[in-house]
Simulated scan of single mutants.
Amino acid sequence: MNDLDDTDFAILRLLAEDAGQGAGAIGRACGLSQPAAWRRIKRLREVGVIRSQRLRLDAEKLGFGVTVFLGVKLATKGRVSLEDFERAVSAIPEVQTVEHVLGLYDYRLRVVARDLPDFERVLRRRIMTLPGAGEVEANVLLSEERRPGPIG
């Protein structure tokens, strides 16, 4: 969509910072009335620029003190379909994201666990038993700074 203006980008930056803001607050920040801001947000949703709003939970406060990024290389690409692997891995509650990637590994997973022994249990009993799971590399998250990404 190439017809976004500076106000649209300002709205997107505000929503990326806090998607729970109402149209009134967005309008005040952008110099618009509440109805005008609401119409712009609605249009951005309708054309697909805004795909969804998500609730971001603090995993540590929920008892999940360890986050691990796993690189997973499928052992037998010809015998197991990517869809079968994706369906099976997506059913594991501790797996927060599944990304099919290009590079050394076929998939990148974000996995949360209560602690390292809990992660080891998830790895051994759930992830390593997935259809086609082969080589795995784990990187433990030490800290994270979230940035919304480039917007206009």
Rank of each mutant, 00 (worst) to 15 (best):
P131K: 15
V72F: 02
P117H: 06
A19V: 05
V80A: 09
P117D: 07
R108A: 10
I41L: 12
A29S: 06
R110F: 00
R121H: 10
V80D: 00
P35L: 02
I127H: 15
V111P: 06
V112W: 05
A25Y: 04
G134T: 02
L44S: 09
L32F: 04
R121W: 05
A29I: 00
L32V: 04
E99P: 13
A59I: 02
I151H: 06
D118G: 06
V95R: 02
V101I: 13
K42W: 01
F9S: 06
L82I: 09
E120G: 01
R87I: 07
D118C: 01
P35D: 04
V140K: 10
E144F: 05
E60H: 12
R13I: 00
L12R: 09
V122L: 07
D84G: 13
G134N: 10
E144R: 15
T76Y: 09
D6A: 06
V122F: 04
E145H: 14
A113H: 07
L130A: 14
R125S: 08
Q21P: 04
A16N: 14
L142C: 12
E135Y: 14
L109Q: 13
E137D: 04
K61E: 09
Q96N: 12
T129E: 12
K73H: 01
R110E: 02
P93Q: 12
V98M: 05
A113F: 01
D118W: 00
A29T: 03
R126I: 02
R124V: 00
V111R: 14
W38H: 11
P131Q: 12
V101C: 13
K73Y: 12
V98Y: 04
G20I: 03
L12K: 04
E86G: 11
D84E: 14
V140C: 13
V95N: 06
R87A: 13
V98W: 03
K73L: 07
P150V: 07
C30T: 11
V47C: 14
G65T: 12
R146L: 03
V95M: 05
A36S: 12
Q21K: 13
R124A: 11
R146V: 06
A23C: 02
G20S: 15
K77W: 01
E144V: 15
R124F: 00
M1E: 14
K77G: 05
R146F: 00
V49S: 13
I41N: 11
A16R: 08
V136W: 05
L116D: 04
L12D: 05
R28I: 03
T7I: 08
N2K: 00
R45L: 10
L4H: 01
P148I: 08
V122D: 07
D8E: 07
P35Y: 05
R124G: 00
E17T: 10
H100Q: 07
V72L: 11
W38Y: 13
E60P: 10
L57F: 09
G78W: 11
Y107N: 14
A88Y: 03
N2S: 14
V98H: 03
V140W: 03
P35E: 00
